[in-house]
Simulated assay, not measured.
Amino acid sequence: MRLQGHQGGQPLHTAGEHHRDIAVYDTNELFGQKGRFRVLQFSGDAVQGAVDLDDPARIVLEYPRAIVHLMELNRPAFETAFMIGLGVGTIARHFAGKRMIVAELDGRVVDLCRTHFGLDFDFDDAADRVIVGDGRAVLAEQRAHSFDYVIVDAFTEQGTPRRLLSAAFFALAREKLHPRGMVVLNLIGRGHRDPLIGAAFATLRGAFAHAGAWALAADGASGRSGVHNVLLAGSDRPIDFRPRQMAGFQPFVPAQGHVIADRDDEA
């Protein structure tokens, strides 16, 4: 997810259900970039993904470019990944030759990705598929030590669900990862001043031997009161990155925080 940054647009689809609006539209400007873009947007101000209609293979938004860099650098020959949150299928499409399993809570998003964003997963292939359902529950059903990466890019109107940031969730992710695997999360927050980011980072550090944090600086076009994308990563091996390949994300030290536990209403 990234905060709103378009100017006008031609709607292709709008729908509201379960207290969440979904829109697909074409626009000639996105986060200050000129061109022809197709955008998936939730709840009026949260861009979930975008495709460059003139160059569909190009990764438009910064956070998936940074996630792809972390994945390619830390395990260049990786084979498997589990993703929570489909967006417009950017990362899944980029790694089309890998074994990718994606859990998406909202079936409408899957349908829109197929009809408007060219997602061409073999939905009947047990090794490479999109599953409509709760991401944590779907992950729990997978075999232990079967993934090189677990990627979390899931949002509600309240942000990333706490049950995807808790100690229990990170323990589950660790169980499903290969010993040299990594979990990567795309969050929204205020960097080193954000208490939730600090708590999520503290919880991640409690589950893995190594953890990293990077923030994308907010600007007038895409930021809102200092709110911006934050990436967190955890692994039992050192996490490598190349600053010039992080699409503008800069490393930072999150605020100290408490360990997040599952809430009774989210268990």
Rank of each mutant, 00 (worst) to 15 (best):
I101Y: 00
V88N: 03
G85E: 04
L70I: 11
V47Q: 12
G85M: 07
V60L: 00
N74S: 09
V102Y: 01
T80I: 02
I101M: 13
D26I: 07
D122E: 13
G44S: 05
L70F: 14
N74T: 06
D106A: 07
D134Y: 00
L73Q: 15
H19D: 15
E79S: 10
D106G: 10
M83P: 00
E79L: 01
R36K: 13
A23R: 10
D124G: 15
D122V: 05
D122L: 05
V110M: 06
K98N: 02
A46R: 12
G16D: 08
A92M: 05
V60H: 02
A23W: 02
L12P: 04
R114P: 08
F31N: 11
T27N: 03
R58V: 15
T80H: 11
F78Q: 01
E72T: 11
M83S: 14
T14V: 13
C113Y: 03
G89L: 07
D122K: 04
R99G: 01
A92E: 03
V47W: 10
A96T: 00
V60D: 04
V88K: 04
G89T: 06
L12Q: 11
Q41C: 14
G133D: 09
F42K: 05
E29I: 10
D21C: 14
H116G: 09
D45A: 11
V110A: 07
P64D: 09
E17W: 14
E79F: 02
G32H: 04
D125G: 07
I91N: 06
Y63L: 10
T14H: 06
H13K: 14
H94N: 08
Q48R: 09
A137S: 10
D125Q: 12
D106N: 12
I101R: 05
A57F: 00
L53D: 08
V102D: 12
Y25R: 07
I59G: 01
V109T: 01
D55A: 14
V68D: 13
R36E: 01
R114W: 07
G89W: 02
D52I: 00
F117R: 03
I22D: 09
L73R: 14
D52E: 03
G118L: 09
I91Q: 09
N74Y: 13
G118R: 05
R20W: 07
V110L: 15
A103H: 08
A81S: 12
Q41H: 12
A137T: 15
R36I: 02
E72W: 03
F37D: 02
V60Y: 00
R136W: 03
D52L: 00
G133C: 01
E29M: 12
G16P: 01
E79N: 06
N28V: 12
N28C: 07
D111W: 01
D122Q: 06
D120H: 09
V51S: 10
G107K: 10
A127D: 15
V109Y: 01
H116I: 05
F121Q: 04
A103M: 10
I59M: 12
Y25D: 05
H13I: 08
L70W: 14
D21Q: 13
E104K: 03
I91H: 10
V102T: 15
V47G: 09
V51A: 07
R108T: 15
C113V: 04
R93P: 06
H19L: 15
I59Y: 01
V138S: 06
I101C: 07
A81Y: 00
N74E: 07
V110D: 09
G133A: 03
Y25F: 15
I22V: 15
R99H: 13
A66P: 01
V109H: 02
L61W: 04
A50E: 10
H94Y: 14
